[in-house]
Structures are given as structure tokens and as C-alpha cells.
Design a protein around this nucleic acid. Sequence first.
RNA 1: GGCUGGGUAGCUCAGCUGGUUAGAGCGCGGCACUCAUAAUGCCGAGGUCGGCAGUUCAAGUCUGCCUCCAGCUACCA
Length: 518
Amino acid sequence: MDNSKRYYVTTPIYYVNDVPHIGHAYTTLACDVLARFKRLDGFDVKFLTGTDEHGQKVEKSANDKGVDPQTFTDTVSQNFRDLLGVMNFSADDFIRTTEERHKISVQALWKRLIDAGEIYLGSYSGWYAVRDEAFYGEGELTSDKDGNKIAPSGAPVEWVEEPSYFFKLSAWQEKLLKFYDDNPDFIAPKSRRNEVTSFVSGGLNDLSVSRTTFKWGVPVPGDDAHIMYVWLDALTNYITAVGFPETETGEYATYWPADLHMVGKDILRFHAVYWPAFLMAAGLEPPKRVFAHGWWTNEGQKISKSLGNVIDPIELVSTYGLDQVRYFLLREVPFGNDGDFSRTAMVGRMNGELANDLGNLAQRVLSMVNKNCGGAVPKHGEFNADDNAMLSDAHSMIDGVGKHIDNQAFHEALEVIWLVIRASNAYVDAQAPWKLKKEDPARMETVLYVLAETVRHIAIMLQPFMPGSMGKMLDQLAVSHEHRSFGFLGPNHALVSGTALPAPEGVFPRFVEEEKGA
RNA sequence: GGCUGGGUAGCUCAGCUGGUUAGAGCGCGGCACUCAUAAUGCCGAGGUCGGCAGUUCAAGUCUGCCUCCAGCUACCA
């Protein structure tokens, strides 16, 4: 089977205790662009997202609300599913850890680990923070005003002492380091890779992978008193979704190992250390790559619930427009870095780059075509050096964009496209088709043809980022839906002269600040 | 305390293995054009490339020290 043209990309499963915010939208957006790009490039793509619904914290939230955990998670999980529609995310599957397929999968993985001798029963005692789902060492704790011990995160901790199963993580230090060494691109960006390797080099402790103090989770096979550790449960979703424990046929055989796990930098360790260790211990292949992206600040301020400055993606979209927001998030910041969301920057990007550079380019070209070429794709004569240079820019865009996409360098990919957009505007001015209209109408048609063809390439290339808007732009060029994939780039599928075009219509309106007062 | 990555034009950042006048976008100033969403194009503005010392014919680009920022990590008995 040809496995080279398939692509499996995942978001983390989102913890249902949260309300969807810009961070969730950002992570999924990055995956959506990758998935769309690969589909257009002829890949068989699986794009997975979903929700993480187990754990003591969820159990507690449900109790506080007076509902059973399943009812509670049914409700809040829907918030994340709704976000897909709002953001136009093209996920192929939405997994919930409370699904039966997942319970089967996690328990099967557990059995593999038991059979391999990678899990043993011991007992655990330590300071545990329910809020963080994590244990802390005595030395990490501080005290609050009332003298209660609290974790570095500020979460209250309690002393727990209970029997627990352990995963022999300590035995995996060398193998993990070798794995990182053999797979230098496994962790991205590079700086994160350094952090992980230095963490692993510092030594690993066995990991407690079961709890007995709550019930809301997947029971340990053969020992119902124990509920599996939430991270072992959660991480397994990535293989559940491809049909694990069936590994010989079906989606697992097709898609695993995943090409990319996209994660926020806060959960990199779980994905880059624990997860590959679990998988290798179970005799399964680890994923090919984990990318840890950064965080957003809001107008220069750290975002936090207590500050009340959480950014709601739904509100953003209704204020600025969907594709404008999608564009901004991936354009404003080198992917992997932290970034700042500000109204000024948002409006600057949408007006300067979408409305002025791109929207106006399409509009000025299509408008001239509409008025001067009988509302149809113009005829062209011989291309001169300028024309060929312009077309060549358009044709070669895919090379640079593809390379950057494979590195998750979205901002660079967009920059490559924008270079062509700027070159197009310069070409319009240099050729001055409005002058040619009187002096040399045939030459004018050739110039407008070159421009229309260039816009076609730009629109096709930008579809993954702004699917809705680029769909409209391609509609205006009368490019049929079957001719919008990357296979139709290049001169062999160029616009056909004489094809009737609809009346042009602006795709990216300028954002005008509303007057305050009255 | 240790490790890693950074400190380059007002702002956000590019600058691979050292080599003529250090680049881009935005912002700012001027000019051109009028097809287009008052959009576009062209030109310019002169930043001791965090500091000091060193290596070299030659250093943002290498070495040492210092300083500041960020992340990770350890310790605080």
C-alpha cells in the first residue's frame, strides 16, 4: 500500500471543563489548514479533534452542578463541536473519551502494557492537586494566606496515599533519548526539542497511572477499584480514532503513525515523553512529529480567567469576519512563538493585506475584465518577458508554500504568497492596462489574462487558509469546483479564453471603525 | 543555581558555513498613476546590529566576560 500520500493530523482533545477560547481555535485552525492543504495536494487525510471528558475535575464539576458526569460532558462537549462550524474546521472525526470505542481501546492498550511487564502495582503517596491532575513534590509547594499548601500553579493540594499502578517510565530514558536522536524532527520547534531532551536527560521517575479516589474514567481491566490516569486515557484517543486495537487492517494500518500531533506548549511533555514511551512499551509505533505552538496575549496582557480578558473566537469572527480571523492568527506570528492579539494589529492586517493587497488586486483585475473584455476570460497573444516572469511567479508559488507548510511555518507560507500578490500589483501598474485600452487593446487583453491567471493561482493556494473567501474568488473566475486542487495549478489547466465570468464583487471589505458616541 | 533560546531601523522581525554602501513588512515623508475597496506603484527616511575585550587582512555573523528578557529545570534543609 502506498502510504506516502496519506496524512494524519490531530489536535489535542480539549478538556471539557474549559469553555472554548482563542487557544483552542488556534490549535485546531493550524490543523485545519494542514488538513486542507494536504487534501488539495492529493493526500488521503484524516483530521482528528475531540474532547477529553474523564477525570476527577470533571466529576467534581458535574457534582457541583447536580448532574451526572455523562449528562454534564454531553453538554459541554457540544461547545467544542459547535466551534468547528463557527471556524469552518474540516475535521474528519470528533472523538469523545466517553465513547465505547475509546474505552475498548484504552483497556486494550493497558493489557498490552501489562503483558509487556511495563506496569506494576505499587502504592503512591504525595501531594495531589485535583485542579492540575498532577502530583507535586514537597519542595514545590508554597503556602497561601491561610497556611494551606498550594501547588506552583496556585491550585490547592491534598495529601493522598493510595495503591496505584505504575508505568516503568524510568526504564525508558535511554530509549527515548535515542528516539529523539534518531528522529531530529520529532519535536518542533527546535527550542522545545532542547527542553524535552534536557528534561529526559535529567532522569525519569515511574509514572503513577491509576487512581482509586474517583470513579469517572476508564476502569483498569481486572481491577475495578482503579481508574486509569487521565493522561494515559486521553493520549490513547489518537489511536482509538484509527480503530485501535485493530492494528493489522483498517484505518490504523492506513494512518498510524500520525504525521503530526499539534499541541500547546503546556502539554508538550505528555506528548513528547509519556506518549511515545507508552506506545513503544506497548510495541506500537510513536507518532512522527509533535509541534508545540505558543500562546496569545490580549493587547499585550496575559490572558486569564481572573483578568476577564479571555478571547472568545465566536465574538472575533462576528466582529472581523471568519477568514479575516483565520488569516490573522496564522499571519501575525511566526508559528511556534507567542503572539499578541490587538485590535490595531487585527484591523491592520485585514485592511492592509486582505482588503488592499489581495481584495483590491482581484477587484481591479476582474473589474477591468468585466468592463473591457466582454465579461469573459480575455484572449491572450504571445507572452513577453514581463508576462512570463509574472506567470512563473504564480506557477512556482506551490514549491515554497509546500515546503513551509511541511514545517508548520504558516507565516512563511503566507509570505511566499504575498510576495506574488505584491508583484501582481506592481505588474498591473507597470503594464497599465487602462492605457493599453486605447493604445493596444489586444495587449491589454493579454495583460489582463496574465493577471486573471495569477489571481487563479493565488486563490487556489490560499484556499486552506481562507476556504470561504477563496471559494468566492474562484467562483468569480468561473473555476469549477473540480478544478481547484493543486493538480490544476500551472499552465496546463490555465483559464480558457472566452469563458463567461460573473460580475465581480469585493471579497474582503475594509474594516471601518464605528463611530463612538451618541 | 543549571540548561536552552534571544537582545538588529519608531514597531514586529529576516539576516546559512565571517567578506563591497546591514534587509523586509508596518508606521512616517515625498512623488507617480487613476483600472480598483481613497486602493496601487516608485523613491526616501541613515539603526555605534545589548555592553566590554579578543581572534582575524576582514565580525550582527567566531571566542571570553558582563548585562537584560523568555522558556525549561533544580534547590530552598
